[in-house]
Design a protein around this nucleic acid. Sequence first.
DNA 1: GGTGGCCCATTTTTT
DNA 2: ATGGGCCACC
Length: 773
Amino acid sequence: MNTYLNSLNEAQKQAVIQKDGPMIIIAGAGSGKTRVLTYRIAHLMQQGVDAFNILSLTFTNKAAREMKERIAGVVGQSEAKNLWMGTFHSVFARILRSEADKLGFPSNFTIYDTQDSVRLITAIIKEMNLDKERYKPKQILSRISSFKNSLITVRAYFNNPDLQEADMHASRPKVGDIYKEYVDRCFKSGAMDFDDLLLRTNELLARFPEVLAKYQDRFRYIMVDEYQDTNHSQYLIVRSLADKYENICVVGDDSQSIYSFRGANIQNILNFQKDYPDVKTFKLEQNYRSTKNIVNAANSVIARNKTKLDKEVWTSNDAGDSINVMRTISDGEEGRFVAQSIWENMMNNQLTPDNFCVLYRTNSQSRAIEDALRKKNIDYTIYGGISFYQRKEIKDILSYLRILINQNDEEALKRIINYPARGIGATTIDRLTIAANHYKKSIFEIIKYIDKIDIKINSGTKNKLQNFMNMILRLQIESQTKNAFEIAETVVKQTRLIKDLEKDGTPETVSKVENVQELLNGIKDFITDKIEEGEDASLTSFLEDVALATDFDSKKNDNKPSVSLMTIHQSKGLEYQYVYIVGLEENLFPSAMSMNTRSELEEERRLFYVALTRAEKVAYLTYAQTRYRWGKLIDSEPSRFLEEIDDQFLYYITPKIPEPSINRFVDKSIFDDAPKGIRFQKPIQRKKMERNLVRKKEIIIPKNLKKVSQTNAKPNLFDESIVVGNIVEHNRFGAGEVIALEGKGPNKKAEIKFSTVGKKKLLLQFAKLKVIG
DNA sequence: GGTGGCCCATTTTTT
DNA sequence: ATGGGCCACC
């Protein structure tokens, strides 16, 4: 038989060679799921199935790309290229583009990201004169999103008394009206939001039987990865498409379902066997990734969940180290511990930083870790947070590009119509919006016909509007002959955006200008890549990529090995030798928002399970007794998850001490003005561990040092300390040498030669330099 | 209509 | 702590 089959265990092999009919692969963490999926697709192709007839849906673009590469390794590049592989959103965006006219959308429809959606909803709430305290735009959006993911259209909403009652009860009787207006406005703008990409696909398949038949015939073999995180809308798409041939293979792990907050429905995987009674079930239970201690510890935690499928993950790997538990005084100390520990493990085991990963529940926790790693000169890459494409200066340019593709794109238009300033103010935009709503046209069309309609805008402003419109129209014409890079470059030049940014010359704007440059380079790379691969290199294609890209997908430019910092959600599917899970505190992890119901808590527990099972060799769990949150120092209790791990797998670096019970009835901060008693800290018991002593010495930082770094408010401490010849470190530019100083007090500047960006003059009071040599 | 300063929320996770 | 939104003044 084929050689690749020999590298598989029995369960994996069975799953790979099962060709037809419905099947489910329950894949425990680290059980070689991707291998199985990859080989299964390759095997199908070797059995004569045409790549064009295989649809494989993944959770991230990155997963799709990697899988495609691996399949190419087995069946060859040219064949692999024909596979339909990608995220639900990207695959169906592509299909929607080619069928858009049926739904009344232009084929070059815009994809609204969350920011666009929130802004539109904010505008609608304002136009409807609703109280934005009661109607919080983000909350409204998430409600609308959940409607869409459950296929509750506007009409379905108004036909459903229960839903309306619920909103009435929540004192938000206008939710349905906002929903309706939001959908109308998206439609008028030729825009779909993320949920529309799924909802409209369902609409397409439901309303047009011939379209359904076409895709049913095209996708004879369907595979869905991470099935536990599909929502109802995705579920229905898959069911519809698979309805004819029923060659449907879903893969997932119910223990790793962590996206219910965005509508994922764990029941999809739990009920798969009910949907297809003649389903074949395969269980991948052998874990190849982690040590026994890690696998068993993870099992001991997840065992507490009631909702789960029956499976037993095991490993034949070594027992390995115990899982280390570390308590620190503060989040700052937690960061320093992590940095110190990573450094020691790197030194002791001759490891590069890319073997380490720090996982946290919320993005905001990254800061303390970053600070500590930077101080130790350990390279790190931070994933998530505000993505590059969300930054204002980038979104502004993208908005210009979007308008060129789709002039009805309302959100793009509103961003740029007066940026850079061209004398078109809020009042004008309000009037245009009212007219647009009245005539059921887009704002851009209103501007086009501004002389022909009754609108209260004076002639000077009309002129400005027409100048703006003409500029866009001109650029549109240019965009027909230029490629995406050239047109972006033209936009930047013609709109004088960079000039506008440069005019106030603070270091922040310097970085903005660089970001713009980076965007242009990115577009250039995109075009080169696509042309090389013989794929669509158009501006539309670029914008779609951007809209659906996650932070992971934007490849980091330098490939210097670095420690990875990310939220646990983002770590799904990844693995690292050493994993640090930080912030294991009640109200943080599990999150305070997720402790109200059993199912929410179970999801947090699955999240913890995911985090722990990322580790191959060593895991560290840390928690801090105090932490800065909302700009305030708060006390924390250790997470219940620490208690839930079977003790035999744990090693307490800091001894486990009974926490003083906290009075939950009275907020002690109301006594803040009372005289402070002596703060008694429990002596640390040093029974077992020498290595702790070493660590302790390293990580205890004099208290005043912390103060110093935090009171950078008024007089910058480094003002006087920096001298010519110092080696300093800058947040973004990295290390550099001070070659000259000028000015006094707040105007004092240093000229610094950076290896990365060359010479720069920076105002010391802003530059936040650290002397490192 | 534009700009600058003040105030406020923000921190759960993301395609 | 920090950025974004809003208001008041130019």
